[in-house]
Amino acid sequence: MCRNIHQLHNFEPPATRDEIQAAALQYVRKVAGSTRPSAANQEAFDRAVAAIAAATAELLDELVTSAAPKNREVEAAKARARAEKRYAS
């Protein structure tokens, strides 16, 4: 999985359209192997991002869980602590 794509399910507040779009863009960039497509490939690239964003939004709408929603700030703090420990010199 792309390291830049973050978990979007079961957060309070729920994932925004911008977060879903960013995840779709990162996925397409990874699969395509480039961050900026050529002019000849731009339309296909944009269609793929839109399709993946739509599928992701549908998936998130349909997923169910009995777990309590995670707090974004708490999870971000945990990630920062892990990064500090990992990259400490």
Rank of each mutant, 00 (worst) to 15 (best):
Y87E: 06
L63K: 07
P69K: 14
A44Y: 00
A53L: 06
E58M: 05
A48W: 04
A51M: 14
V64Y: 05
L59P: 00
R80V: 13
R82M: 05
E84L: 13
R82E: 09
E84S: 12
E62G: 09
P37Q: 04
T65Q: 03
Q42A: 10
R47W: 05
A53I: 09
N41M: 14
R72Y: 06
A67Y: 07
A57N: 04
E84M: 11
P37I: 04
A48Y: 08
P37D: 04
E62W: 00
E73L: 09
P69C: 15
P37T: 10
K85P: 10
A67I: 00
L59E: 05
V74P: 04
A67H: 10
A50Q: 07
L63P: 01
A68F: 01
A40P: 04
A53N: 09
K85L: 15
A77W: 09
V64N: 05
N71D: 11
L60P: 08
K78G: 05
V49Q: 01
A51L: 13
A40G: 14
S38N: 08
L59H: 07
E73T: 08
R86P: 10
A40I: 10
E75N: 08
Y87K: 02
I52D: 13
V49N: 01
K70E: 10
E73Q: 09
A79D: 08
A50C: 07
E84F: 03
I52H: 14
A68D: 03
F45Y: 04
K78Y: 02
T65H: 03
Y87D: 08
S66M: 07
V64Q: 04
P69V: 12
R72C: 05
T56P: 01
A53E: 08
S38A: 04
A81D: 06
K85Y: 13
A51R: 15
L59W: 01
A40L: 08
A50K: 13
A44V: 14
K78A: 07
A48T: 15
N41E: 15
E43D: 12
E62F: 00
A81H: 03
K85V: 14
A68P: 02
Y87G: 13
A40Y: 08
K78M: 10
E73G: 05
E43P: 08
L63G: 03
